[in-house]
């Protein structure tokens, strides 16, 4: 029987049969198993409006860490935060506040990385006009009471202005901001 004489319905039947069997094959094959890494790099616990306060020996607060959301990851023991805000308390003056968009807390809780733009500020009090400082990618070393960045940093103690590259700020007793290179200052009258 030559090809032309084979009825079209036979062809259609064959195509339909292959489609059905492909569909059944798809149906029966199990979904790919989640790899081990995917399973582990997942959040094992999380918190909304997360607050962590560190106290001094005399029972007064030393620092406070707040975040809109915090999620802890099993595999690297790191906690990731959304919109972290840190407060550093000092006697007699308003607290220093450090804000950033994202942040992480190391496993031992001692190292906090504030990613992207970081804004340090202290409210005015009495006749003092307050102070603002801007930097980027700031690492806070809680156990050693200092924070640092390698990026361009500006200090605005109104109406004066100082900037530099690289910053190391000691918050063990008050706040001492060290600018590490290329310092420019401007003092207004």
């Amino acid at each position: 029987m030559r090809l032309r004489e084979v009825p079209i319905s036979l062809f259609a039947g064959l195509i339909g049969l292959s489609l059905v069997s492909w569909w059944l094959a798809e149906l029966m094959t199990p979904p790919p198993e989640e790899t081990k890494a995917d399973l582990e790099h997942s959040i094992d616990y999380y918190a909304k409006d997360f607050i962590r306060t560190e106290m001094k020996a005399d029972g007064t607060p030393k620092s406070r860490l707040f975040a809109v959301a915090m999620g802890h990851y099993l595999d690297n023991n790191v906690s990731e935060m959304e919109k972290p805000v840190m407060l550093f308390f000092n006697p007699g003056v308003p607290p220093w506040v450090v804000r950033a968009n994202t942040g992480t807390i190391s496993g031992d809780g001692n190292e906090i990385f504030l990613g992207g733009k970081a804004w340090l500020s202290r409210e005015p009090f009495g006749s003092d006009k307050g102070l603002d400082a801007y930097s980027k990618n700031v690492t806070v070393h809680m156990d050693k009471s200092y924070l640092e960045s390698t990026e361009f940093t500006e200090i605005l103690n109104h109406p004066h202005y100082t900037s530099g590259t690289g910053m190391h700020t000691d918050f063990s007793d008050g706040m001492q901001i060290n600018l590490l290179s290329d310092v420019r200052g401007r003092y207004e009258f």
């Binding site: 008050g174 001492q176 009258f189």
Partner: peptide, 24 residues
């Protein structure tokens, strides 16, 4: 001169918020 701002350049600087001093 007295009315002009003071511009400062230096290698490093420290601003001590508690004492209100800046050391260039």
């Amino acid at each position: 001169d007295a009315k002009e701002p003071i511009y400062v350049d230096s290698d490093t600087a420290t601003y001590d918020d508690q004492k209100g001093i800046a050391i260039y």
